Simulated assay, not measured.
Amino acid sequence: MARLLFVGGLGRSGTTLVERLLGELPGVCALGEVVHLWQRDIRGDERCGCGDRFSECEFWTRVGELAFGGWSNVDVHRVLALQATVERTRHIPRLASTRLPDDYRVRVREYAGYYTAVYQAAAEVTGASVLVDSSKHSALAHCLRWSADLDLRVAHVVRDPRGVAHSWTKVVARPEADGESEMTRYSPGRSAMLWNAHNAAFGLLARLGVPLLRVRYEQFVADPRAGLHALASFAGLTLDDSDLDFLTESHADLTTGHSAAGNPMRFSVGRIPLRRDDGWLRGLPATDRRLVGAVCAPLLRAYGYPVMVSRGGAR
């Protein structure tokens, strides 16, 4: 049975950083955002985290051969059709049921089966005992809960929603795509509603009995070594001090990975700085800070964040 650590949370919360650092640990294989593999990689042949086209990446070629006898045997249209019918936020109440209607259960398990095949093949290719999927999508995690062949554990990454909102307003290029391409942008109000929905959905997973560890971005960046020790223990790994030699409080030394998709940080190799991004304190207008704080107030309190924050960072 494949042991999967699913890194979840709303985008721009630090999930890619968590995934990249996890990928440096022995016994771990970080796969990036597998949810995008079908459209962007198999169909679009975008670049792997190693820099090669997906079709030219030796790692993903081997995974495809083991999982499906080659990626050409994957009916991408079928996978995307299943995704549209089962893996949507609006389907989470149904997915959270103790029993699914027979026809719907068959589709959910078929959809989860494609992912499970990828995880199992990646484990065989690398010898890893823990696979990391940083797809983030709460609905996908709810679908994977129905796989009988996964040991699913969830790292729920949370960041102050005002920092998330500020990040979603920025223009971020997608270097893996051909031509001019930018990542999606959201208004502060829209990102606040998404923050509530996705984080509440992960809380629901925990209430359903899925093992879940909440990781606060701000605490993780302040002490990444402690954060990785906690995540490794949660995933069933035992670390020696030497396993974290690549990491200090101020930087991490990253090697080349094979993230299928995700934030452009997945292409970063070498020394990267580790510092908390609080640019939103000055960059996000006061009206937007108040709006996001009001919309997200219940979960802000639950996660230990202040509801109101001044430009200087005070309550």
Rank of each mutant, 00 (worst) to 15 (best):
A2E: 02
F6G: 03
G8S: 12
G8M: 08
S13H: 14
S13V: 11
E19Y: 10
E19R: 04
L22Y: 03
L22M: 14
V35C: 13
V35T: 15
H36C: 15
W38M: 14
D41I: 04
R43A: 15
D45A: 02
E46S: 11
E46P: 02
R47M: 10
G49R: 03
G51W: 10
D52C: 12
C57Y: 03
F59Y: 04
R62V: 00
E65W: 04
L66C: 05
A67E: 04
G70S: 08
N73E: 04
D75Y: 08
D75N: 14
V79S: 01
A81V: 07
Q83E: 09
Q83K: 15
Q83R: 14
V86E: 03
R88F: 10
T89D: 13
H91T: 15
P93W: 06
A96Y: 01
L100Y: 07
R105K: 11
R107Q: 11
Y111D: 05
G113V: 10
Y114S: 06
Y114A: 06
A117K: 08
V118D: 06
Y119P: 12
Y119V: 02
A123I: 00
V125M: 03
G127M: 12
V130P: 10
L131I: 15
A141W: 01
H142L: 00
C143S: 02
S147T: 08
S147G: 08
A148S: 06
A148N: 15
A148V: 04
R153W: 08
V154F: 09
V154N: 10
V154H: 09
A155G: 14
V157A: 11
V157M: 02
R159Q: 05
R162H: 14
G163Y: 06
S167C: 09
T169G: 14
K170P: 05
A173N: 00
A173V: 03
A177N: 00
D178A: 11
G179H: 09
M183A: 12
Y186T: 05
P188S: 01
A192M: 03
N196P: 10
H198A: 09
A200D: 13
A201W: 15
A201R: 01
L212D: 01
R216A: 10
R216V: 14
Y217P: 03
F220R: 14
D223L: 15
R225H: 07
G227H: 01
A230E: 07
A232S: 09
A232D: 07
S233Q: 13
G236K: 07
L239W: 08
D240Q: 13
D245W: 11
T255E: 09
T255N: 11
T255R: 07
G257W: 00
H258G: 02
A261M: 05
A261W: 04
G262A: 06
M265K: 05
F267E: 13
S268H: 10
V269G: 12
G270I: 13
R275M: 07
L281R: 13
L281K: 05
R282G: 15
P285E: 09
A286V: 15
D288V: 03
R290M: 05
G293E: 04
V295A: 13
V295Q: 04
C296I: 02
P298H: 05
P298S: 10
R301M: 01
A302D: 14
A302L: 13
Y305C: 00
P306F: 11
V307S: 00
M308R: 11
S310I: 09
A314K: 10
